[in-house]
Simulated assay, not measured.
Amino acid sequence: MLARLIRTMATPQWLALFGLVLAGWAALYVMAIPAEMRSLSRIYGSDFWAGLCRVTPDSAGALKLWGMWALMSAAMMLPTALPAFATFDDLPTSQRDFAALVGGYLAIWLGFSAVAALAQMALWQFGLVDQTGLSLSRILSAALLIGAGAYQFTALKNACVSKCRAPLPFFMDHWNEGPWRMGLRLGAVCLGCCWALMVLAFVGGVMSLAFMGLATLLMVLEKLPQLGDRLTRPLGFGLIGAGALVLAGL
């Protein structure tokens, strides 16, 4: 079984996918904002980040943010979909359409990245986040944490994460739509499952490797069929509790 898995993962499409994930994380490592630089920004204020050309309130700044969010989304979300991609790759005549499936999946997250970039620009202009995307508002941080925690208990979250945990029935239901549209559907399901955890980047720090690593691990585990069901509700309670502590100023 292990030898078969290794042979499957050594095919060109899988090597390209793994290369894309590794390149994404390598780029994020280079672009990540160290904690000491965040501390300096608190000392020197907005001029510190303006000098580094992090965020500007114009189309160029929005485009840079979109690229940053797109890179972050791809690096974080592709690993969470690997079981679904492997299931698709095992289906008959699927291999030649593998790239179309992954492309459709990424297209959804590119759209999410555009919305997230615009949201970060708006929050920055209202003084709710700094130029690194880190929340400056206790109320905003608490609202995001409590909102993400509450979302863990919703019917939409349950419906989306259930499909992520059972990709074979999902593909069978939509097989006639073709790989691109199935990729779009898979991306939409994944978005419905994970968007609330992704926006916690405004609390944990946009481009913070610690946040990205922890969030990716949680989203990967939550999509596992046996373990994930035991994680969703405790994670929700934990996020709500963290939000309450932030709101209380603790």
Rank of each mutant, 00 (worst) to 15 (best):
L82W: 06
L82M: 08
L82H: 04
P83M: 02
P83V: 01
P83Y: 08
P83T: 00
A84Y: 03
A84K: 03
A84L: 14
F85V: 04
F85E: 07
F85N: 09
F85A: 11
A86K: 05
A86M: 15
T87V: 13
T87M: 14
F88S: 04
F88P: 00
F88D: 01
D90W: 09
D90H: 14
P92C: 10
P92K: 09
T93E: 14
T93G: 09
T93Y: 12
S94V: 09
S94C: 06
S94G: 13
S94F: 09
Q95S: 15
R96A: 14
R96S: 15
R96T: 12
R96G: 10
D97G: 07
D97W: 14
D97C: 14
F98V: 05
F98R: 02
A99N: 15
A99C: 07
A99P: 02
A100M: 15
A100L: 13
L101A: 08
L101M: 08
V102E: 06
V102R: 04
V102K: 01
V102H: 01
G103S: 14
G104H: 00
G104V: 03
Y105S: 03
L106W: 11
L106D: 03
A107I: 04
A107V: 11
A107H: 08
I108L: 15
I108E: 00
I108F: 05
W109C: 01
W109M: 10
W109A: 01
W109E: 02
L110N: 01
L110D: 04
L110M: 13
L110G: 11
G111M: 03
G111R: 00
G111I: 03
F112W: 11
F112L: 11
F112M: 03
S113V: 04
S113W: 07
A114D: 00
A114I: 10
V115Y: 05
V115M: 08
A116E: 06
A116K: 01
A117V: 05
A117G: 02
A117K: 05
L118I: 12
L118A: 15
L118C: 11
A119Q: 10
A119C: 14
A119S: 14
A119G: 10
M121H: 09
M121V: 07
A122L: 13
L123P: 06
W124A: 06
F126L: 07
F126Y: 09
G127N: 15
G127A: 13
G127E: 15
L128I: 10
L128M: 15
L128R: 01
V129Y: 00
V129N: 04
V129L: 07
D130V: 08
D130M: 04
D130L: 10
Q131C: 06
T132F: 15
G133V: 08
L134M: 14
S135N: 04
S135M: 06
L136C: 13
L136M: 11
L136H: 06
L136T: 12
R138C: 03
R138P: 03
I139P: 02
I139W: 12
I139F: 12
I139S: 11
I139Q: 13
L140M: 15
L140G: 04
L140I: 12
S141K: 09
S141D: 14
S141E: 12
S141Y: 14
A142F: 04
A143K: 08
A143E: 01
A143P: 06
L144V: 10
L145Y: 03
I146V: 15
I146Q: 10
G147Y: 05
A148G: 11
A148R: 02
G149S: 03
G149Y: 00
A150S: 15
Y151K: 12
Y151P: 06
Y151C: 01
Q152P: 09
Q152T: 02
